[in-house]
Amino acid sequence: MFASRGAGPVIAGLAAVAAFAILLETAISVGLIGGFVVAPPTAIAAALPKFFAEEAVGRAFLLTFGSTFAAAALAALIGIPVGYALYRCQLLGRAYENWIGAMFSAPLILLYPMFLVVFGRTPAVCIAMGFLVGIIPVILKTREGLLAARPVLIDVARSFGASEREILRKVLLPAARPPIFTGLRLCLIYAMINVVGIEFLANLGGLGFLVGEMFDRYDIPAMYAALICLILTSALFYTLTGRAERWLGAR
């Protein structure tokens, strides 16, 4: 299910997970790690059927996936043009680059009560937060990618009479595609962390809420089952962006 072709990498990946599970199981059974903090993998596996049967996992997944996707899509839709504007206007680019970078390392998630006030207790809070954090790497990576496009390639297009629009579509964006996709991947990661975090903190439903709920019930194996669902969701995003990048590259 991961981006690389062939069964080899998948098998290797699963083998590593299995090896880790066995190690963990052993460590817990010999008392190296407390079983109350970390659930033994066999207990998590045993808890899965009940977890899926009793909790609305599918709906939680859809909510988290949907909110993250919406936040990232908005961030891409607005972030890529903003990155382009900062590239075109060098002065603005130099002026704002550090500010935007600084915002990236600020704990923006602490603003979530404000968003609750604005949007009420709806998934819009998660989307808005995810968007706010996710747009930053999109802007920075888009600008960086465009700046790194080799000038001679632009000259080639110009020598064939290409318009500015054609240069953007056929030279600048393809040249900047790898960094832009790096930006989008970072965007998805940060958007998801924030979406899940707020679901957890503000009891807004979704997988984040489910993790918190299981913890409140002190059902540790189920809590880890919910976490595994989260990891799979993020793996799904990773695969999807890889697909999208290759699809764009093949055109």
Partner: peptide, 8 residues
Amino acid sequence: EESTFPWR
């Protein structure tokens, strides 16, 4: 300079 489009 090298001027082919690497993505084409």
